[in-house]
Design a protein around this nucleic acid. Structure first.
Length: 550
RNA sequence: GUGCCAGUAGCUCAGUUGGACAGAGCAACGGCCUUCUAAGCCGUGGGUCAGGGGUUCGAAUCCCUUCUGGCAUGCCA
């Protein structure tokens, strides 16, 4: 918004001959850290000094006159090296507060003329075991990002890719079958590198209870393994779906890899690539020339025995997504897959869906810390190693906030003892408290018989530093959402909410909401009402509840 | 060996695509409740932005290099 005002000012200045004609550079708009530098600031005059061959201060002075003509701006300043600082008018920020209240449920939502359709795939954990902590992080980040994209005016679909096919699945089936026989007291051989966890026994027990006779009817060992694997996988997927739902993450699609193999899509993807001349044959294998797209080496997609590799199935999966016509395909992967980006994005480019229309984000690893020591969460399942344990221990709100509050490419040390022990010092509660406090204000107001009518709000009462700070923050809500969605950085929403809560608590201590002055009380309540709406919306985006009392 | 991520206050981390004196939370210390929720507010201390070069009006941010930690480097998924 500010950017376009500045750009227009630039254009007009050129048209009037006040500035030499030139290509207008991109207008960058910043939010100065200090209030004295304005609400927005642009270094455009500094950056264009070379092109224009004018001093930044002169350019700034010229632009100032043009920018000042906008209604939403109260003042424009040109500061020393050549920054143009813009101050918003009080009426503008005050008016924005009222538009929030006119439709609180939709505050922060932007509407686009041509919304993009975006697919966000995340978590996609193997169905061979329970969800672990890093899945929880991916879930929190992916869902928050999807919420942000939605709020920024695009259409989003959440998707979970289920790898229910291949060697790992067979191995899992063999492991469960072995445990079933063990339980029955029959002779059994536990597969080498099989799945060790105690949960395998639990699943074996469950399958025996529920499908014993059905499985007894199967005679061939291979068929039996396949059948057991499918039962076990289905069981795990059901568990994962339940866990995700409890984590407030609901996927539109749980996409089964097996389907791709069964209906021939995997081999069709090979043909599709072959038509684009990026497949060659070597020693009876089919190889994708991914080095042409910056990969370290070419990748085998079909083995010499004719079986496709995982990569080919993944390519087929992404081809399926391409065919569904998304404008943008977003994948969030775990840290152990970053070496995989080059080959898949190479395939995407080969299939005509590269560049800006495909993006892989890596959710970095999480180290669970207990009493200063990292908890190992590999084979043997110790306590707190699963997502389930985590939710049971610290709750959904705290978990979702903690996983979202950091940028996704930073490794996260998650101190469980701290998250639990100091739960009252938790940033999550700080935010929720702000919301609950406002709800409490309205309860108290009602008890005292105060009539609240936002249309009778008087702006003079909010024309103070604390009120202005709050209203300005609320004005920024939309931009913050759009920026965070664009950058794929959901953690920004957490910082924003922190500032909003801080600002509210400040106002609360400095101003008495419920007083004998009825006009003032009504005006203050109007402000609180708007803050409540924004806070609730922001918390919803992050996936945290907004309690009415604490 | 090569690639990716990270290295910022005692701890966990932000730092808005190169901007103005480097920030927040927690921890520490000192203040603030007869009145709307003190799960709050105010203040103080705390830094060689891992080290070294470079690019320019300007660098925590970009380039080169060294060091440290983690991950990856399968025709597993």
């Amino acid at each position: 918004m500010i950017a376009s005002i500045v750009r227009d000012a630039f254009k007009k200045a050129i048209a009037d001959g006040k500035l030499p004609a030139c290509d207008i550079p991109d207008v960058k708009v910043e939010y100065p850290k200090e209030q004295k530098f304005g609400d927005y600031s642009t270094p455009i005059a500094l950056e264009s000094s070379k092109i224009l061959r004018r001093s930044p201060m002169d350019t700034g002075a010229v632009l100032k006159d043009y920018i000042e003509k906008s209604e939403i701006i109260s003042e424009v300043e040109v500061a020393r090296p050549g920054f143009i600082n813009v101050f918003l008018s009080f009426d503008h920020i005050y008016g924005n507060m009222h538009s929030i209240l006119s439709d609180p449920e939709n505050c922060g939502r932007s509407v686009k003329d041509r919304p993009r359709r975006i697919n966000v795939e995340f978590v996609s954990a193997n169905p061979t075991g329970p969800l672990v902590i890093v899945s929880a992080r991916a879930a929190a980040l992916g869902d928050a990002l999807a919420n942000l994209i939605e709020m920024s005016g695009d259409i989003v679909e959440r998707e979970f890719y289920v790898n229910d096919y291949g060697n790992q699945v067979d191995l899992f089936g063999k492991s469960v079958l072995a445990r079933m026989r063990e339980i029955q007291g029959k002779p059994f051989v536990f597969p080498e590198d099989g799945y060790q966890g105690e949960y395998v026994r639990d699943i074996a027990r469950k399958i025996l209870d529920e499908c014993g006779p059905e499985l007894d009817a199967i005679t061939g060992e291979v068929d039996l393994i396949t059948a057991v694997a499918q039962k076990a996988i289905d069981h795990n997927i059901a568990t994962q779906q339940r866990d995700m739902h409890e984590f407030n993450v609901d996927f539109k699609t749980w996409f089964r890899e097996r389907k791709l193999h069964e209906n021939g899509d995997v081999m069709a993807a090979l043909d599709f690539l072959a038509q684009r001349n990026v497949i060659y044959e070597q020693d009876g294998k089919k190889v994708f020339s991914s080095t042409a797209y910056g990969d370290d080496k070419d990748r085998v997609v079909v083995r010499d025995d004719g079986r496709p590799t995982y990569l080919l199935a993944d390519i087929a999966y992404h081809l399926d997504k391409i065919k569904r016509g998304y404008d943008l395909i977003l994948d969030i992967w775990g840290p152990d897959h970053h070496g995989y980006i080059a080959r898949l994005s190479g395939a995407m480019t080969a299939m005509g869906h590269g560049g800006d229309s495909f993006r892989v984000l890596i959710a970095q690893q999480v180290n669970l810390i207990m009493e200063g020591e990292a908890v190992k969460m590999s084979k043997r399942l110790g306590k707190f190693s699963t997502m389930r344990d985590l939710i049971d221990e610290i709750g959904v709100d705290v978990a979702r906030y903690f996983f979202t509050m950091r940028s996704m490419d930073s490794h996260l040390d998650f101190d469980l003892a701290l998250a639990k022990k100091e739960s009252s010092e938790n940033p999550v509660f700080y935010l929720q408290y702000a919301h609950a406090r406002i709800c409490s204000l309205f309860r108290e107001a009602e008890k005292r018989g105060v009539t609240y009518d936002p249309s009778k709000c008087r702006k003079e009462y909010l024309d103070n530093p604390e009120g202005i700070a709050l209203m300005k923050l609320m004005l920024k809500f939309n931009e913050e959402i759009v920026d965070a969605a664009q950058a794929c950085e959901p953690h920004r929403m957490c910082s924003y909410l922190m500032k909003l809560a801080q600002s509210f608590h400040r106002f609360y201590t400095d101003h008495r909401f419920l007083s004998d002055d009825r006009e003032q009380t009504n005006s203050y309540l109007t402000l609180a009402d708007a803050v409540k709406a924004v806070m609730k919306q922001g918390l919803r985006i992050v996936g945290v509840s907004a309690p009415e009392r604490m």
